[in-house]
Amino acid sequence: MSSLSTPYVEDRRGGLPRTLVWLGLAAAIGVVLFTVLGRFNSEYAYLAAYGVLQYVVLATGWNILGGYAGYVNFGAAGFYALGVYGSVFLYKLFPDLPVPVMVLVAAGVGALFGLGMGYLTLRLRGVFFSIGTLALSVILHTVIVNWEFVGGARGAYIIRPEDAPFFSSYAAYLCALMFVLAVIAVAIARTVQHSWLGRGLAAIRDDETAAECSGVASLKLKLAATSLSGAVLAMAGAPFPFFITYVDPATAFSLTVAVNTIAMPVIGGMATWIGPVVGAVLIGSLQQLATVTISSSANLLIVGLLLVVFTSIAPFGIMGLLSRRRTVR
């Protein structure tokens, strides 16, 4: 029985022209976004935009495994921190390395860690996998706290360059980088969804035993999904140390990251690539507002409540609600 599939009509108009349309659309959104941000021209505007974009990357990356294959990864903050501390480690060794290179390294490390996590835990089904990922995240946290080279429990300072070429400030440059990462993440998620991989994962999600019986190589597909998901999650963390210039384990393994990364796809809708994006943009913006107007602990309460409400009344998320309405009419 399908538990997650929304009434979704397969899109067959693939190919190069469509990809170009998508790239054009992404570029247009980017131009509009940065024109508006340029108008504000305050560090805070970039901070808020960076936060929302970062969640687009995280939610999209998480959804490749959690939404498509139905394996809930509680260790998202662990992967994020892997990216964060990957950058800190590289910065300590080569302070002049450009940030995009660090992002690439983080993606590689995240993919490897995801693959390792998959080997360790994917023979377990469902819930045990989830608890296993939580376990790995906590162990990684403990290792980082005890690792003096990257600052240990005290944290590490990063001295970032004053400005970046073509951008008004370094924050603007990192914000633009995060936008590019978001586009890449969405492109990966969309490609996976429409490929043989996505269809195999959907079969696993609906009924793993049935999928295996009909010849889906479930372990191989799940390993591909954990690696891809891990790479995207770690990528999201890599620019972060340069953005706030000081990181400690508590910020890197932040609870907010762990909760939001799961909540955004669940609330937006997990069956398609657009759900996590919608969830991240809506909840991310709502939280930016709540942080300014109420308090930062209200954030967690809002997300917790939304999670409880949405899982209860709208199991397919916002996108599920929208598409149901469309089919009814």
Partner: peptide, 26 residues
Amino acid sequence: VFERRSEDSLQGLAFFFGLLFVVEVS
């Protein structure tokens, strides 16, 4: 809400995860 729809595994997990934070922040 969950068991009868037989959506207890994934949705139920997310539900309790949300509940965890609602209780903690309260």
